[in-house]
Simulated scan of single mutants.
Amino acid sequence: MLIEVIADTLSDALLAQEAGADRIELVTGLAEGGLTPGYAVIERVCKELKIPVNVMIRPHSRGFCYSEEDIEIMIQDISICKKLGAAGVVFGVLTPDHKVHSKHLNRLIQAADGLDITFHRAFDEADDQFAALESIVQYPQISRILTSGGQSSAADASERLKRLNELTADSHLKIMAGAGLSVDNIKAFLDEVPVTEVHFGTGVRIQSSYELAVDPERVRVIKKIIGA
């Protein structure tokens, strides 16, 4: 079982690593759903951590439908993340009618050649998640989809996530469950949905707040619960 923890500072990333996180999703703008962090933060975190760091590539918080200029900026961000030592990148692109934007996705994947790729929770805004899955699974470069099954909390979408996990079982693509998972619900969730990667944000923070730091004890308890 792999545990990914969101971090928006070097100190949070170090706390998560020390507590046993397996991978960091590095972002800024947590209240806006996550944006691309500054280059100095990316460089320091990638330099000082021993576990993989996957960086959010999202130039603004106005949804997941991007202009040509946005895509060019995202490609530049991906290039810089490579140079700064990121293990991977995290992005998602949709059309105005909430389908996977294949043209934009192709360009971002090409730019990210050699990096681990996560298709993020833009997937949860797709008009049809199963159709979106069929599109994404065509790309062997994409390692996983981060999703809450279309709900605000993954814990409320166990049937959907179980089905998505089943549909990817024989593929290269993994379903990483995230959003709303915590010390209190992770065991029951995994009893129903046998994913192999889980993603934590507020669930491993002090007072479950993005305004406060990562709580290493919560990470340790989760690792103990799931036997990681």
Rank of each mutant, 00 (worst) to 15 (best):
A86Q: 02
S152M: 11
G85H: 05
V219F: 02
S148R: 07
S153V: 01
F123R: 09
D128Q: 08
L146C: 07
G150W: 07
T95C: 01
L115D: 04
D116S: 10
L164C: 12
L173N: 06
G92Y: 01
S208I: 00
G149M: 02
G88P: 02
A40Y: 13
E25V: 10
S208T: 13
V221L: 13
R163E: 14
I225Y: 05
V41K: 15
I142T: 07
I225C: 13
Q129Y: 07
P52R: 01
R160W: 00
F189I: 08
T196P: 09
T9A: 10
I226S: 05
K99F: 01
I73C: 11
E69N: 05
K83T: 08
A154K: 07
D22F: 01
I80V: 10
I42K: 12
F91C: 02
H104G: 05
S135D: 13
D97Q: 11
P194M: 04
L94V: 03
P194G: 08
I78T: 05
Q138W: 05
V100T: 07
I206R: 15
D127I: 12
E18S: 14
A19C: 12
L94P: 15
G150L: 05
N106V: 02
F189S: 09
I51D: 15
A154Q: 04
E217P: 13
F200R: 08
I186Q: 02
V41G: 09
A228I: 08
L30S: 04
Y39C: 08
I73W: 04
